[in-house]
Amino acid sequence: MNDTAPVEDLARLVGLALEGNHPAWNRIVDRYSGRVWAICRIHGLGTADSADVFQQTWLRALENLSALRDPERLGAWLGTTARNEARATLRRGRRTQPVDDLWLLDREAGPDHDPERPVLTAARDAELWDAFGQLGKRCQEVLRVLIVDAEDRRPSYELAAAALDMPIGSLGPTRKRCLNQLRRFLTEGIDGQTRES
């Protein structure tokens, strides 16, 4: 009854899913959901569109599963597919949103576009949110896509490189630079100054 077993090998999970093992597929979705969702969000998609792109990405992954045995390819493939679907959705124009989604309509990926800051329970979270919002768009994107909820505590560089159109080798240094900037905003304070972007 140990639920914290070491990270399952992704190739094995994909292999099991191909044999029809539904729980294996669930684990794959669990592992990458946060990252796929982050890609929807950094494109500035609202809730309904993000939901569509998210579902579409997973359905297409199922369609292509046999070609994605290599876990390296799965991460990159999910990144590319989510990005392409998000861009195509933006090109087609946002779909008519249900009324209860209206408050999210103009919400963009990063906090700096979010007029109403969500209720953040801890003051230090609020401070972090504001500091993050001061970062340039690229930094917000890199930090958002690289860090999100890796069950295995590792970012997927393949996915991030594909989603952001960046060489994989530049992700680490960029993240480092962005973290330094973020730390500066945190320690020097924001002083309510809005940065033109």
Partner: peptide, 26 residues
């Protein structure tokens, strides 16, 4: 990074019903 990760998990996680739907898509 850990703080950022926790913040995004709190503020804008992949909605649970969407994750379930993606899993059921199998």
């Amino acid at each position: 990074l850990a703080r950022l990760e926790a913040m995004f998990r709190d503020v804008d996680p992949a909605p649970a019903d969407l994750v379930t739907l993606a899993q059921q898509s199998f």
